[in-house]
Design a protein around this nucleic acid. Structure first.
Lengths: 140, 140
DNA sequence: CGGGATCCTAACCGATACTG
DNA sequence: CAGTATCGGTTAGGATCCCG
């Protein structure tokens, strides 16, 4: 009835953001494994963070992919990239206000993931076990 | 010192869900363009929805991908799949309580996307124009 | 109607080497 | 340090045909 379900509006909203392509593009940005994690790391540190430091904190991302991810985020106005032409060069990344705003949502996602990771793991195990035992819909 | 953000907790959380692989797996599930949209559609209708109806509402997804997406969601305990062995067959999908819970977050994401789609579009245009004009870091 | 099986292509991604 | 450029392997995904 209130903010939780809100059926009528919800249906309209779906009609909106499913049909209107631009909003889909925005969702497509979020639909990236690393984007969620990058926003998480940038959100965690109060001060700007350098490229390789970010890379280390993400543990597993390739330099190529991180570069691409960051540039996409910068392009969308979610991340600010500051270059200091020193030697050696120094590039610092931080969230824009818009990115910080979005970061609140991705942070909530992260918390949700942590809270329900066991529950989902159990569901997966049960599903896989069922799938392993019933591949004979013809017999009996 | 640290002002805006709640540093300690935030950092700990990042340490948690960045290092612990299971939570990453959960995030990887969400990091899918169609998962967000599927959850949105399932959330919108109060009653279960059939396969092809779902397919129509998503407009653009292929049968193969929708099948895979739904089975993944079912495996994770987010979607319930009910089969009625009639002729012709009838399969209805709906959210589990867990899926509905997650749906609140993805719904918030959708609202955010709608609210900021123009802002992001502007940022993209500005970025692209800048990139088109400054590909000469050597001259001048 | 709700998929499964197959073929095929484009996109991605990791690894490596090079640069300012 | 923070990238760019290139190559090669893997895979996600579209298109098509078929079945219960």
């Amino acid at each position: 009835m209130d903010t939780v379900f809100d059926m009528e509006k919800s249906t309209d909203l779906v009609e909106d953001y499913l049909k209107r392509c631009p909003a889909r593009d925005v969702l497509a940005v979020l639909a990236d494994k690393w984007v969620l994690l990058v926003l998480g790391v940038l959100r965690a540190g109060e001060h700007p963070i350098r490229f390789n430091e970010l890379r280390r904190r993400l543990d597993g991302i390739t330099q190529k992919v991180l570069t691409r991810t960051l540039r996409d985020l910068e392009r969308d106005g979610l991340v600010r990239r500051a270059v200091y032409p020193t030697v050696p060069p120094r590039v610092e990344y931080s969230l824009t206000p818009l990115g910080a705003d979005l970061g609140r949502l991705t942070h909530a996602m992260g918390q949700w993931a942590l809270a329900h990771v066991d529950e989902i793991g159990t569901a997966r195990a049960a599903f896989d076990e069922r799938a392993a035992r019933e591949p004979q819909p013809l017999s009996s």
